[in-house]
Design a protein around this nucleic acid. Sequence first.
DNA 1: AAAATATTTTGCAAAAATGCAAAAGGAGGA
DNA 2: TCCTCCTTTTGCATTTTTGCAAAATATTTT
Lengths: 300, 300
Amino acid sequence: MVPNWDDMRVFLAVAREESLSAAGRRLKIDPATVGRRVARLEASLDAPLFTKSQQGYVLTPIGERLLDHGLKAEEAMRAASGSVSGSSKTLSGQIRIGAPDGCATYLLPQVCAKICDANPELDIQILSLPRVINLSRREADMAITVSAPTAGRFLVQKITDYRLHLVASQEYLNAQAKIENLEALRRHRFIGYIPDMIFDRELDYLVDIGVERVALASNSISVQLGQASLGSGVCVGHDFALPFHPNLRKILTDQLSLTRRYFLIRHQGDQRNERLNRFAQALTAGIREEVVRLEAEASP
Amino acid sequence: MVPNWDDMRVFLAVAREESLSAAGRRLKIDPATVGRRVARLEASLDAPLFTKSQQGYVLTPIGERLLDHGLKAEEAMRAASGSVSGSSKTLSGQIRIGAPDGCATYLLPQVCAKICDANPELDIQILSLPRVINLSRREADMAITVSAPTAGRFLVQKITDYRLHLVASQEYLNAQAKIENLEALRRHRFIGYIPDMIFDRELDYLVDIGVERVALASNSISVQLGQASLGSGVCVGHDFALPFHPNLRKILTDQLSLTRRYFLIRHQGDQRNERLNRFAQALTAGIREEVVRLEAEASP
DNA sequence: AAAATATTTTGCAAAAATGCAAAAGGAGGA
DNA sequence: TCCTCCTTTTGCATTTTTGCAAAATATTTT
């Protein structure tokens, strides 16, 4: 009769994922158990919460109503966990970060490795996302973005600025006439993002330069730089990525230099979550350091 | 690592009761289990929540902080349960009502019996309290009072007015000179509440009449009426109580008649709790009917 | 002072919940 | 049309949780 509070936790997962198996993956419990706990909750509430089918679980109107309250409970439970600063000196558990692929590829691996070394109990998951992450749905605990969100209640914190320049491989440059100015670029092949898959205006570098056509495109910056590295063309790349592609050279650095900024976005409700606060602190500091280190290495 | 939400439920009970066994009684689970679940919560939060001793569990500062969030979670869970109208036609589970003793003694038994008959799955607990009930601490789901609360966020609903008169036993009246007016009362012995235990000004009937001395006192109205019934003196009694004391007679009804009002108090957060709404509806209707019936019976 | 009554804690057997493996049922693609 | 992959569901062995009984300990009463 009186519901088990923990069943609400699995209810939320199922409501979000619309599937027992996906919810099970997220919660790291067996889908069968997930199904049984939903059934138990329905029994104790004496109401159908989902319409069940082989292609998933979808909320009934009653379930929708329950979801509203469940989210409130979740917020409270999250704040509760956060309020006990976890007396232990070291962080533990699981933290998931969403980030644009440049950051995820070239910065987070080293930074997170260092954090993990210092906190052996901590598991970090890096979500490299080809789209703006939906933090409201709790897809991640925090997200790194290139523009501050305008709507929604979030904690926004500047991480650091970083620079981008035009790059091409040494071999490519040797084979061509020296590129003297921006005008000369018109005769070159460009590598960039897939135009209609650019999810943030800040990432639409090429439009800033006036380039209209992208011959080789990928949704992954590392694929782009890989192609540039093979001598396929000219590309806009992060300075901090260059040490990973030794034969890439910056070009026209005096005539074209882009600056962008990383932000750390968190849920408003996590403001007093000491655990996440400490992690965020370590993360931003780590990224800042790493950008400085890599950009210095790339400057000559 | 990730806490079991249901452990928060038992944490709240222990925090309130400050004892494993009392919490166990309230939750209807074994004290040993309560202790183990608290231990598990502490382990998953990695923080000491209680200082434990043989005389009970008392919150640590960390526990205090957790309590705040836990209460929020509880509110959300309560609202969640309430939001699903419990598709079944009949009420079930457990509902606890606090009430002043007059109401608890002479009205609620019949009214609640009727409600229970109509809802076989429902358990009703009547808390007859010698003090103003602390609804904020969730000692009860709802409370009946004689004055509307001034502070706090509560739902207040008038139930019904009721009347009180001076009463004495037939035998007592026969043995005395006829009491013609209020002035004549000065020579009689009064039965009433224990003066310094009156918790609500509305119950301080005798001061309204001008009586200063109470010879026989009890904190229980049924004890008072029992004494009056034995011919020990004059007492202020509820009209609706008289049918239960057949040899009591109202006196000076034309010169002294008190009217009081019962209110039903509920938690603001329960406003959309269909289950409690339905119960409250049945309760107020039942009390209203019962007062009318009993007062009619007492009038001749 | 000693007995009685609370409390928490511990040991163990019973009960419940869980994970795994297999079954059953569709949706989408070759 | 069939085949494959993805679901949910079911049966069963294992693990975990729970309740009960007894032990240990302190407080209150006689």
